[in-house]
Every structure is written in C-alpha cells, then in structure tokens.
C-alpha cells in the first residue's frame, strides 16, 4: 500500500513540468526514504535525478519498495488538473496496476480522483558517485534561465568557463558571437539574489544549449540554481526543492575531435 500526501501539491506539479520535456517514460521509485526517479533522455546525453524525501510529506506510507512506470506527459496532464493550492495524494494498492492522484482543495470542498494505468518500463539505472567539483557556481535561477535562452538565439553550444574573474558563458553562430560574464556578488539584499563561485581551479567545458534550456524548466522550483563543473565529468545543474529534496540534471560535455 502506498499513500503519499503532499500538502504543497504545487511542488509536484512543478516537478512534472521540469522533467517531462527531457524524459518521456520513467519509473518513480518509492521507498521508506522517499519518492525518487532517475532517467536518461532518449539520446543518453542527459540524466535527471529527482528526490522528494519522505519527511517532506505530511503523510508518507510505503509498505514496501515500489517502482511505478509512468508516461510523464500523461502524469503532467493529470497534475495540471490540480489547483496550485491543492493537497495532492499519490495512492497505489499493492499489486494493482494503477496509480491514483487525489487532489483536495484547501477548504476540502472539492476532492478529485485521477487514476492512471501503470506501464512496464525497463529503465537503465546509472551509478552516480559523489564527486569533488573544480568549480561550483550558485546563482539566481532566473538569471541562469535568461542566459541560456539568450545564448541559444545566437548559437547551439555554450562554453562555460570559471576563472577567478567569474563565470563566463560564450557562444558563436552564423550571425555572430556572445559572451556573458557573471561575477561573484554577495552584497545583495536577499541571499537568493547572490552569485557565489567556489573555484578549486579554473575549468572550461562545452555543452549543448538545447539540454540546458530544457533543464531551466525547473526554474519555478527554486530561486537559485547550482552548477557544478569538473573537466572530466558531466555538469550537474541542481534545483533544490525547499525542505524536500532536489531535481538534479547531469549533462555530458561536447569535446573537440
């Protein structure tokens, strides 16, 4: 028996909007620790990892580990029927091949049940070892989304370089080139407006902007984003989900042959 009750149902709505463009079908894994998902995009260039810890749910009952295969587009269609202030409960009986999403309005005067058939998805799970990163940039998520959007109108790959000057985003295309430098800035009114750069050593990597732009669909989840770079690893773009967990995107770099 699975019954997960999330008072801040809007988080789940935003999570689906954040991942459904990158991944079509995926398994949601439920265990005592939480509700998670790991999936690659169809071209195996990017990977998304979601974790919603059990403590973040008002009620979290998961009698035994369960993996539920779903089409994320269909889940998104159902969750769009939930109000942004609704309480969302995910329910599944042991052995049943359906999952139910229940939406309760804040004053309990409207209760909706959306039931969906589960799918058999044999997804490949990748082991992601903890790593030390040569540079970690923390910046306003809206800022990062704006940079990725602006640069993709000029070119389709971005070189992200971190030096002691700051973090530079560069691209080039048929119409010309663009360079955006963000410097560390801690003197801001609100901490979420700060740009903080931790650099162990300078690093520069090249990535496809199309994937970074799909990662920024997670912007509504968090005021800030962290970008972790190492010359021999995929970039990790992380949006924390307040008090619950995170959505992490991993993107393999492009190299000069």
């Amino acid at each position: 028996m699975l019954e997960l009750r999330l008072v801040q149902g809007s988080l789940l709505k935003k999570v689906l909007e954040a991942i459904k463009e990158l991944v079509t079908d995926a398994n949601f894994d439920c265990s005592a620790t939480g509700f998670s998902l790991q999936a690659m995009d169809s071209s195996h260039v990017a990977l998304v990892a979601l974790l919603l810890r059990s403590e973040g749910f008002e009620h979290y009952r998961c009698d035994r580990n369960l993996s539920m295969g779903m089409n994320l587009g269909n889940v998104s269609k159902m969750l769009r029927c939930a109000g942004s202030d609704d309480i969302i409960t995910i329910k599944a009986d042991d052995g049943s091949d359906t999952v139910t999403f229940m939406f309760e309005s804040p004053n309990q005067d409207k209760i909706a049940d959306f039931e969906m058939k589960l799918m058999d998805i044999d997804s490949e799970h990748l082991g992601i070892p903890d790593a030390e990163y040569q540079a970690i940039v923390r910046m306003p998520s809206g800022e990062f989304a704006r940079i990725c959007k602006d640069l993709s109108s000029i070119g389709d790959t971005v070189i992200i370089s971190v030096t002691k000057e700051g973090v530079k985003f560069s691209t080039a295309g048929d119409i010309g080139t663009a360079n955006i430098v963000c410097r560390q800035n801690k003197t801001v009114d609100k901490p979420e407006e700060a740009t903080v750069i931790e650099m162990q050593e300078p690093v520069s990597l090249t990535f496809a902007l199309r994937y970074l732009n799909s990662f920024t669909k997670a912007t509504p989840l968090s005021e800030t984003v962290s970008i972790s770079l190492s010359s021999d690893l995929p970039v990790v773009v992380e949006y924390k989900i307040a008090d619950m967990g995170y959505v992490r995107y991993y993107l393999a770099p492009k190299i000069e042959e």
Binding site: M40, V45, L47, H125, L233, Y250, A252, I255, E257
Partner: peptide, 14 residues
C-alpha cells in the same frame, strides 16, 4: 568538429 559525449561514458549502469 565537436562531438557530443554520452552520459553513459561517465556513469556505469548499476
């Protein structure tokens, strides 16, 4: 030319 690497080059299947 630029070559896009696969994520599977960095993380092994479990």
């Amino acid at each position: 030319t630029e070559v896009q690497l696969s994520i599977k080059r960095f993380y092994r299947s479990t």
